[in-house]
Structure formats: C-alpha cells, structure tokens
Write a protein that binds this DNA or RNA. Sequence first.
RNA 1: GGGCAUUUAGCUCAGUGGGUUAGAGCGCGUGCCUCACAUGCACGAGGUCAGAGGUUCGAAUCCUCUAAUGCCCACCA
Length: 897
Amino acid sequence: MNEIPTQYNPKEVEDKWYKFWEENDLFFAKSNSIKKPFSIVIPPPNITGILHMGHALNNTIQDILIRYYRMKGYEALWLPGTDHAGIATQNVVEKQIAKEGLRRQDLGREKFLERVWEWKEKYGSNIIKQLKRLGASCDWRRERFTMDQAYSEAVNEVFVRLYEKGLIYQGSYIINWCPRCQTALSDEEAPHKEIEGSLYYIRYPFKEHPDSFIVVATTRPETMLGDTAVAVHPYDHRYKKFIGKTLILPLINREIKIIADSVVDRKFGTGAVKVTPAHDPVDYQLGKKHNLEFINIMDVSAILNENAGKYKGLDRFQARKLITEDLKTENLLEKIESYKISVGHCYRCNTIIEPYLSTQWFVKMKPLAEPAIKVVKEGRIRFHPKRWTKVYLNWMENIKDWCISRQIWWGHRLPVYYCRDCQQRDKSQTPDSNSQINLKEEPGLIVSKEKPEKCPFCGSTDIYQDEDVLDTWFSSWLWPFATFYWPKETEELKYFYPTSVLVTAPEIIFFWVARMIMAGLEFMGEIPFSDVYIHGTVRDIEGRKMSKSLGNIIDPLEIIEHVGADALRFSLMLITACGQDIFLSEEKFKTGRNFANKIWNASRFVLMNLNPEEVRVDLCVFFKKEDLSLINRWILSRFYSILKKITKALDNYRFNEAANLLYSFFWHEFCDWYLEITKADIKDKHNQVVMYKILEKFLRILHPFMPFITEEIWQRLPSPDQSIMLQPWPHVQEEMIDKKLEEDVRFLFSVITQIRNFRSLIEIKPEQKVDISVYPHTKKRLDLIQQHSLMIKNLAKVNQLQILRVDKPPRPSLSAIVEDIDIYLHFTRLIDIKKEQLRIKEMISELSAICKKKEQNIKNKEFIHKAPKEIVTKERNEIKRLKGEIIRLEKIYNELC
RNA sequence: GGGCAUUUAGCUCAGUGGGUUAGAGCGCGUGCCUCACAUGCACGAGGUCAGAGGUUCGAAUCCUCUAAUGCCCACCA
C-alpha cells in the first residue's frame, strides 16, 4: 500500500471513473423495471451555454438526489438534454457570420438556418461535455433536444390543440419589442430596470387660444409625435372645464382632443397626460376605449418613420434630443426634471425595450392557470423552501396572456398557414384604412400540424407558412413529457411521468416552472412533478450576480482543474443553506480540496493497517457476537446516528446539513478521535474490522456528494464489489445506536481535553512527571474513568504525558483511594506557584502597557492622520487579541491562587 | 406601491418542535514535519445572537414594532 501517494490527485482519477461508469452503462434507467421510479428532468441548458457556477450548483444537487435514490433502490432516471434557445443562439450565429461581413438577411432564411444547425453540431454539446466533468450521472442514452423531430411534433400538437380550444389567438397589442433583436418579447423576457431619466414638461397650446396651454409630463418626449389625445381625470377641477376642447400638438401641428379618464393620476406630474396609443400599453387601452387613432411613428429598428414628419430617419434617442431642442426654441418646454424611471430591457441583449404595436400570437393563460393554482394550494406540488409558494401563487393569480410569437428564424415555426387567394380577395373587399395598423385577424388562416395541401376555404393550393417562430419557452414548458415522446403513449412516459422533483433557480419560476405545471395538467391531466426545489443564486463575494461584464466570474471548470470536481461539489454543498443565495470566492473551494485529501489519507491509513482476510465479516453478526470495546461501540453508534440524520436531511433537501454532518463526522470523530485512539492497538482484530466497516459504509453515504474519490477508494478496498454506484444505501442499525454511551464517551473526551489543556497551561519538560486533576462529578463518571483508564493513558501518551493514578474528587483525606486503578488524582502541581504568579503578573502589566500605547496610536491615526479604515480595523483587532491574551493570563493567575 | 428574505466571532455562514457552557470553515496567536495526512496535529483568543417590547420557569429560536441591507413583482405617464 505504500505506493499510494500521500496527496490525492483528482486529475488522475476523475476521467477514468466517468468513463468506467459510462462503459458499464450505470446511468441507464429502465422503463420496464419492477422498482419504484424516481425521475428528474434536467433544466435543459442552452446550447450556447458554457458551464457556470449556477449550473454547477444546480446539477450537483440533481446528481446527489439521483445517486442517492439510485442507491436507495429506486429506478433513478436523470434525463438530460439541451434547449435550442431561440434568440440567444440566433444572436451567436449572427455574430459569427458578421465576421464574414454577412447579415442573416444576406444569407436568407434557409441558408442561415443551415449555418445555425452547423453551429449546433459543432458547439451545441459543449455544455454536455462539461456536465460530464462535473460527474453528472445522466442517462445519456435518453438525451433530448428541444428541436428534435419528435419534440417538434409535440410542439405543433400543443399549438393546434390550444388553438382549437380557443386558447391561442392572434391580435394586435402593444408588446415588448427589442429593436436590436427585432422581435417581440414576453413580459418575462423584458425585465424592468431603473435608469436615470428625465421628466419633460411640454406645453400643448389650445386651438382656440394659442397663447394658453396645457402642460403634460412625459419621460419619452419623442412619442409625442404619435399623440392622439391628452387625458385628464374627470373630477380634476383644474382641467374639468377643458374636457372636449381641442389642442394643437406642437411640432406636428395636429389637432388632438382632451379626453377624461379615471386612470389618470391627478397627483402625478401636471395631472394631464399625453396619450400615444401606438407606443404605450396604458395609452393603448385608452385609445381603444375612447376610439382614438393609432399612429405608429417607428419602424422595427426604432427609427422614426414617415409619420414623424421631419424627424423621419432618426433613431429614437436622437429624436428625443432634437425634439427637446426644438421645443425649447419654440418656448414650449416648461422644464426638465431628472427622474428615475423603470424601463424594460431585452433579457438577451439588454437593449431598452420599445413598447410597440404589432400583430402577435398569444396564449390565454387564465383557464390554464386555474388548475395550476389548485394543485399547489392543495399541496400536491410542494415548493422547497416553502416561501416560493406565495410568489408562485401571486404571479399565477395575476397572470397575463403570453405572447408566444417571435420574429426570428431559429425556433419552431408556427404551424400556421395562409391562403394567398383568400388574402387577395379580402384585400380587394376592404380598402386600406387610414390607420397604419391592421387590427384584424389575417384572412385565409389555417392552423395545422402539417402543411395543408389546399385551402379549406377556397381550395387554392397557393399556401404559405407564417414567418414567425415560437417563444423558446413554448417548447420548454412541455419538457417533462415531450421528452418521453408525448403525444405517443410510450412505456417511459407511463413509467417515469410524473417526475419526482424539479431542481431549479428562482429566476425561472415564471418562465418555466409555472408553465410546466400548466402544460402538465392541460396535456397530461397530471402534475409534472411533486416537488420543486429552488436553490439560491450564486453571487460573488460582494453579492453581485456573476456576469461577464463585471468580470467577477468564477469558472467551475477552472476550479475542477485546480481542486477536482468532488471538491467543487462538496464545497458548494457545504455553503448552500436551503435556498439562500451563495456568496462565493475561490477560497471556499479549499475546504473541499482539503476534505478530499483527508479522506484520501485516512483511507490510506486504514488500508495500510488491514488484514484483508480478517475484515470479511458481516458487521451485524460481528457486533452481536463479539464483545467490542467502548470506543468501537462508540464509533458504530455515532455512524448510525449520523446516517439517520443524513438520510433525513437528504429526504428534506437539506444538502448543507448533510454535507456538514459528513464532514464533521469523518474528520472530527472518525479521524481525530477514533483513529487516534485505535492507533495504539491497531493490530487488534476488532479495531480493524470496525475501522474498515466504518470506512466502507462512509464511502457509500459520501458517494452522492463526491462520486469520484469514493469510487477510487472503493476500488482499492480488499474486495471491491463492482462499482460503488451499485451499492445499497446503508440501513440504520438501531441496535447499534446507544445515546447513553455516546454521552459517556463525550465525557471521557472532555477529560482527555482537560489533560491537554493542562499541558498547554503550564509548560512541562518532556521527562517531567506530573499529577493532574480531573473532576468527575459523579460516582458513575469516576467509574467510567476507571474502566477506561487504559484508553486515557494511551491518549495521554500521545500527548507526551504519563498519568500515574486517579482518585475521587477532593476530600479532606486520601483514605478513599481506590486500589486497582492507575490514575491518581492529586492537587499539587509540580511547579513553583509563587514564581509562576510573579511571571504572569509581569506579563500582564507588559501587555497592558502595549495595549494602552496602541490605543493612543489608533486615535492619532484615525483623527489626526485620517488613516484608511482597513488599517484602523486591523489595529483594533490586534488590540482585541492582546486584551484576550490578558484575560487568559488573568484566568491562569486566579487559578493559581 | 406590494411581496419575500437577511441581520449570530475579524470574514463567510450553520443553528433542526424554545432547554446545560451558542457552533463550523477561513483568518488570527502559541507549540509541533509524532512512522495516514503541514491540503496536517494539539491548544488558545474572539459573541449583549441588529435594537426595543411581549409570551414563558426559560428565547438566537415564538409574537409585535423599529432600523439597516438585499432580491422579486407592479402600467404611475
């Protein structure tokens, strides 16, 4: 065994075992098993993704659950896959072809999509490779992609079903428009962020009295070009008399009316609001209600169009500037106030969203939400931690319709077709209205899974498909069942659906979790999973999200490179308190690395001191048959106590608790106490068996957390039984748990600690013999010491102490000395107390003097020299430390008196 | 504006139905390369558990209020 290196080297180990597991097909889950199923579907990472800490955390948790349940005897399936990530992927490929000086329009749709597929083939599985390095035990045979043929069929099926049920409709509304990506976005894809803006107060003159005016306030002055009214509150006494009057829209000189509506807040701005129905969602509602004209002033890039008069061709922000100036020169700008506004940003490119009127497809959400609310309220789906339930319910109860069409190319094309002949006919019947926007549904519209041969309305064969694609999430929300080939009723669908638990991040509760619940209930008639574990967000040490632009990314692959996947996984689990955000720094991975090394060396020690023939026994039989020493019974009891706790912790998704238990048990109980004590009598058969059995069982319960190192050591055991992955999770042996014994031993340890304390209090020369005192308060405990005097003696020996005799607590006489014991309790210490007192006193006064001096120094530095905070704090800590030292010495002094 | 969370050692955080002396890791100090491990061992210093009030024999823990910080949601132009 000496050839085993003293330092654990994950690099030599991890790839080897991952290959071994894959080659032996150990991740595969059968769909015709007699075992109980346990299934998790992976939150499919984007094909453009690279593994970041969030993935590492998310997938470590899933892997722990899967490995744990696999060992517990379930048919555990972890179904992997990737998401086509519409906008993200398109953006990446657009950037790539931009290097060749091309835009996607230059290539055309078909050629461009070819390029995307090429890109996907080449880079799309990077993230999968990275997951493997993490140790993810996914069933790779079942890997899915959201644009697989079968998956796309499911998407079409769903679209058609919802359309036929009247839950999908087409309509013109104000949607979030990203002028850079040139597509519509759902509300969830356009998060609001606060930015520094201004509130512009603009004068709108009356038609009748051009010298007087109404002042309106706006944050987007350029939208005034599309104004078709000014609204005031019906009971606002300032404006009541003007309702119905006509104003002249400055710069454009169009006549607009003053209307009254109670949505207007009298207290905000001037109490009068300009109404731009085509460029603001609230104004849109007003426009509909009051029958106003909808004037669109921008094109798809947010460049002003011909409706903007002389501002045509300007970008929206240039226009804002110029309009402000023009208003100033005409003396129509009353004032500009700086003002914080909350505006939507594209979640992919961070461009400011333009509320834009266009025809899009929507899903009616209310009918889908109702059953999804019910199952959570009834507790059929549980969130962990619980608090997310409220967040979920709150969102669901206020749900809005979902805009699902996107004006990009990469994605599932809408299964919507149009008949050109029908459209021609329609056009000739209704001449173009004045309005720029066609608010009516398209004529000759056909929704069908396959392209129809001919138009069902007129029989024409001149049919073309809608250009738009579906929102990426419109495919993701089917993930828990479309991955099992729904709508086909496959064996795996029946066996693995509903899945067991979903592990995900809080930011996609709305995007994904909520929608999966709705889809599951609507299409399967059954919840998609019973438990949702929401873990925290990984942040940097200052609490910021990790992002490329901030440059604060800690790359998990780099960490794996340095300390290994096991260390990464374990460190993450140690600091992940249930659902709390994680504040990460590279330092934290040291803990995992050191722990791995500790396991490595402890195992080395055990294996070096083993007689392989002797340890091949059944632990339970051995336990019953043999008369085991206290310390052996103690470690067995401790192991099973800990096992009980860990099992409970894992069942309740308390990963940090489980990790903590594993860590402190192994390090501070098994290594620090058990092995140290056992060392003295390592040749003993009982010790060898127990030591080996504990290690062997510990490896199993550690395996879900640290799969590689546990497999490596497992394979070095005297008789490795295949892979550790195939070992059952140990049963709790209640008969070996003895709480009273645990308490007794804890007391014995405290005695030993006292011996050590004593030694550090007073310096003892190596050869010097001393009597020391321990204070067992009860007869029982004295007995305990006496019974285990040998063990204490051995431990004392490790601490270079020799113990002579022990006695009962102090009594007037020594008449009660118990014979037959070899520890003697005595109150004399072999030192000159007076001398010692003097020495300590001197030290105390010396330290006090230093303290005073330092305190004065700090004051000077702080107030006179204005030293930086860090230096002052450092000095303060130093003083604190010194004061602590003084207190310590004083204690010793008092003890000597 | 609504909701949620956080506040415990110098730092980062645990603390499981209220119950002996409030824990860990890192950092700090002292002594050790003791034949598993210096990625280690032993020992030590360091806490009015944010503040106030309440319930209780007993509160870091339960209740109320206050303060600070962070996150999410919301159409206030």
